[in-house]
Structures are given as C-alpha cells and as structure tokens.
C-alpha cells in the first residue's frame, strides 16, 4: 500500500472491533482490527461479500454504532455520534413516505435551522443535480427504485456533508438501472466533490466508481483485506483491458482470503 505524504486523511479508523450481544448472552464478533484511512475528496469503495460487517463499519463511521474496540476519527476528531458532517444513503432508501421529494431533500437544511427560502433553494439545486426536476411534488411511492435512491442521494447531499457514506445504495436495483445509477453517481460526485465511502458487494461497481478499493474478508469477524489503487481514467468501461486485469487480480486475491 503506497502512501503519499501530502494527502490529508479525512477519516481514520484505528483497530476497530465490534461485538454485538445477541438475545441472551450469545456474542457475535462482527469486526476485528479494522484500520482504514480515507483521503480528502477520495472515492473509497469498501468491497466485501454479504455479511462481512462492512455495513457495521460504515455505521461506526456514521456514528450510529460505537465500536467496542478502537476508534474512528473524522478530521482528527473522535467520532462519538452522528452529525450533519456525514451524509448517509441507505440500501432500502429510507425515504420519508409522508413527504414529497422536495420535502425529503430539504429535510437536512430544515433540521439545521436554515430559513425556509434557503432550504427550498438548496433542495431545488440538488434535485436538479440528481436529475429529478419536475418530480418535486411526487411522493416516494410514485417513484421507481432508481429515482428513490436519487432522492436519497440528493437528501444526503443537500445537507452539505463533508463525507458521503453510501451503504450498498444500488443493492435493490436491477442490473440496467444499477449501471446507469453508477454513472450518475460518478457524474454527481465529479460535479460536487466530496469524500465518499461506498460500501458494495459488487466488484464491477467498485471498479467503476472507486479511487481505491478496500476489500474485506468473508467470514465473521470481518477483517481488512488488501487495498487496491484504481488509477486508470474515468469514465471506466468494464471492457477495458486495465479494468479486466485489476478485476482478475482482485478476484484471485479475495478467493485466497475467502
């Protein structure tokens, strides 16, 4: 793992471990000795098979869970709880069914006490950014899966977080929509750069989107695998030579770890 000295680390996780207590006294060891650095304005993908604790890791960074061992830092400050500096996008969208698209997106600014007009403007800007203009007055149940997740992304973006945390955001979409949404995510990210931590179990998704790919091992407790740097040009095509080479390299390696 090569390190550039002048890169600022936005998020640092040191030796994080997490143990859940299940009903009764049974302990489930989910994460073990996870260390991770996310650079400023970097698109980091955490790639791992289902049930390897990657979502838990993301929730720890989000501040929604506290690690049982180790610590997570944001800008050198210990993460103790959730905050508006980190925007979260969920796999199951988690939109407010009782609010329109506009109402969902302007929730963040509203909660942070901005005046109504400003909330509107911010929300409008991000609805346009994710390409949902004309749907402001729709309720979530009137939207397709891809559109719902656009709302989810816009909602997180509208709060102007420094870090975006995406938890398998396209896991519920069909392959076509998924590919399209990946391109959209790339476009949105390039329009307004943020530090992004993107959790997925899809290797192609990881290769299309990531600046770096951090792999996690399969069985519980989840451990950190090798980290790969993806340094070829965007936009990437799954048929590029470099793409296939790296893809092969990752599959080989993760097979070893599994």
């Amino acid at each position: 793992m090569e390190k550039q000295k002048n890169v600022h680390n936005k998020i640092v996780c040191t030796d994080i471990g997490k143990t859940f207590i299940q009903k009764g006294t049974q302990q489930v060891h989910v994460l073990e000795k996870i260390s991770l650095e996310v650079h400023d304005n970097e698109f980091l993908v955490i790639l791992g098979p289902g049930q390897c604790g990657k979502s838990t890791l993301l929730r720890i960074i989000a501040g929604l869970e506290t690690p049982t061992e180790g610590q997570a830092f944001l800008d050198g400050k210990l993460i103790t709880g959730p905050g508006p500096d980190r925007g979260l996008v969920f796999q199951s969208y988690m939109l407010f069914a009782w609010r329109t698209v506009m109402g969902n997106v302007e929730m963040g600014p509203k909660l942070n006490g901005l005046p109504k007009k400003e909330c509107r403007e911010i929300a409008k800007h991000y609805i346009d950014l994710v390409g949902l203009q004309g749907f402001e007055k729709h309720y979530p149940h009137q939207l397709s899966g891809g559109m719902k997740q656009r709302v989810g992304i816009a909602r997180a973006y509208a709060n102007k977080p420094q870090v975006m945390l995406l938890d398998e955001p396209f896991g519920q979409l069909d392959a076509q929509t998924r590919l399209f949404m990946e391109k959209e995510t790339e476009r949105i990210w390039q329009t307004e750069k943020r530090t992004v931590v993107f959790v997925t179990n899809n290797i192609d998704e990881a290769l299309i989107l990531g600046d770096r790919i951090a792999t996690m091992t399969g069985k519980l407790p989840g451990k950190m695998g090798p980290v790969y740097k993806v340094d070829f040009e965007r936009p990437r095509e799954p048929t590029d030579m470099e793409f296939l080479k790296l893809r092969h390299q990752i599959t080989e390696a993760s097979e070893l770890v599994l």
């Binding site: 207590i21 299940q22 869970e65």
Partner: peptide, 9 residues
C-alpha cells in the same frame, strides 16, 4: 442489519 444489538437488561 443482520445483527441486533440487544439492550442490556
């Protein structure tokens, strides 16, 4: 979430 964090007693 596959794992439930059970409230302590």
């Amino acid at each position: 979430m596959a794992y439930e964090e059970v409230k302590v007693q």
